[in-house]
């Protein structure tokens, strides 16, 4: 069972991802924790050591890019999926360079996110 940490400043977005995972559409995944910004994400990740993370980029306190860099150092085994409305290639490449393993653009369909999560866990 892969343990997932959901990082997004929008409660709606967090609930949507959580609901999708709970529905069994992805399989082999359970929600281990949620965080509303980068700082909180680091703190939660320290505590629960997730296997995978969905990461928003635009967030208060600490943004997603900085958080990815931190997490990559903290939990090198954790796989990070960027879920962001920023759709330009440069942003995605920067995130991957910092340690992200995949990305999904908002708005996304359930099928798109499920496929990206499956791909992430492979």
């Amino acid at each position: 069972m892969n343990r997932l940490l959901i990082v997004d400043d929008s409660l709606v977005m967090r609930s949507r991802i959580a609901r999708l995972c709970a529905s069994g559409a992805v399989g082999g995944i359970e929600i281990a924790g949620q965080a509303a910004n980068g700082l909180e994400a680091i703190e939660v990740a320290r505590r629960i050591t997730p296997d995978c993370v969905t990461m928003d980029l635009t967030m208060p306190e600490m943004d997603g890019e900085a958080c990815i860099a931190e997490l990559a150092g903290l939990l090198p085994e954790a796989r990070i999926l960027v879920v962001s409305a920023l759709s330009d290639k440069a942003t995605a490449l920067r995130a991957i360079k910092k340690g992200a393993h995949g990305f999904v653009h908002k708005p996304f369909s359930d099928a798109q996110l499920a496929a990206a999560l499956k791909e992430l866990m492979q």
């Binding site: 290639k89 440069a90 995605a92 490449l93 991957i96 393993h101 995949g102």
Partner: peptide, 17 residues
């Protein structure tokens, strides 16, 4: 990134600037 072995080529295909 393309020279990094850990990154799947498929992931980068869509990001070619």
């Amino acid at each position: 990134l393309l020279f990094k072995d850990r990154i799947k080529a498929g992931l980068l295909d869509q990001l070619n600037p």
